[in-house]
Simulated scan of single mutants.
Amino acid sequence: MTTRRKPAVSAGVPTKDDIEAMSLFRYQLRRFLRFSEEVTHTEGITSLQYQLMLHVRGFAGRDWATVGELAERLQAAPHGTVALVSRCEANGLVLRRASRADGRQVEVHLTVKGERCLARLASKHKLEIEAFGWAFNRTPPQE
């Protein structure tokens, strides 16, 4: 039985195994992102709009998010996130509400249309993640 050596976790020059692991990770990540781009396009939205909806619904303990929280999750500038929220709002996927707790904050919520779209897309993404889940949380298959 052949065992694969785990990449070294240390600072300094990456080993050949490190480079191979990084290459495989980037390949799997790109495959997943391409899949996501294709399925979101068939749904009539962009991958970024899907990500926004996913993050709106994905906060623990609540079903909404602030623009600042969404900007952080998307790793985007706040003004770009505002524009993305506006596009999603124009498509009927999200709506904005003034926060009851803090009137200076705006909460972004999914609409019924947004919930349905997210459910369809999240189901497809879940199946794709499970299809090559080892890339995220399991030992890779032997080559």
Rank of each mutant, 00 (worst) to 15 (best):
W64T: 05
R96A: 12
L95S: 05
T3C: 09
D63R: 12
R116V: 12
R5I: 12
K126V: 10
F59I: 09
P7T: 01
Y27L: 13
E128I: 04
V39H: 05
F132N: 08
R4I: 09
E143V: 07
G61Y: 04
A119T: 08
L110P: 01
H79R: 14
H41N: 12
R26S: 11
F35Y: 06
T139P: 10
F32H: 08
K6T: 04
V82Q: 05
D63C: 06
H109S: 00
G12K: 01
N91S: 01
G80R: 06
R26P: 02
F59W: 01
V106P: 01
T139N: 13
V13F: 03
L127R: 15
T46P: 01
R97S: 10
R34P: 02
R96G: 09
K16Y: 11
G68Y: 11
A77H: 10
G114L: 03
V56E: 01
L54P: 00
M53N: 06
V108Y: 05
P78E: 04
N137V: 12
A71Y: 03
W64G: 04
T139R: 15
L110S: 04
D18M: 00
E115T: 13
M1R: 00
P14E: 00
A8F: 01
V67Q: 08
G61L: 05
E89M: 10
V67H: 04
A77W: 08
V39L: 11
Q105R: 15
D102F: 09
V67T: 07
A60E: 07
T66F: 03
E37P: 01
D102K: 14
H79W: 07
R73K: 15
A135F: 02
R73E: 15
G103S: 13
R100C: 08
F136W: 15
I45D: 02
H55N: 14
L84Q: 00
P141A: 08
N91C: 01
R104G: 07
E107L: 11
A101E: 14
E72D: 15
M1V: 03
T66D: 02
G133Y: 07
T81M: 00
M53A: 07
H41V: 05
R96Q: 15
P78K: 05
A98R: 15
A122C: 06
R26K: 11
R31M: 12
P14V: 02
H125K: 15
L29M: 11
V82E: 08
H125D: 09
S23Q: 09
V94T: 12
H125W: 11
E89V: 03
E72F: 11
A98V: 13
R100V: 13
D102V: 13
V85A: 07
R57P: 00
S10H: 00
L48H: 01
T139C: 10
S123K: 15
V106R: 02
F35V: 03
L118P: 02
T40Q: 05
V9R: 05
Q75R: 14
F59C: 01
E128L: 06
H125Q: 14
F136Q: 10
A83E: 03
D17G: 06
V94M: 06
E130Y: 08
K16E: 15
A90F: 06
L24G: 10
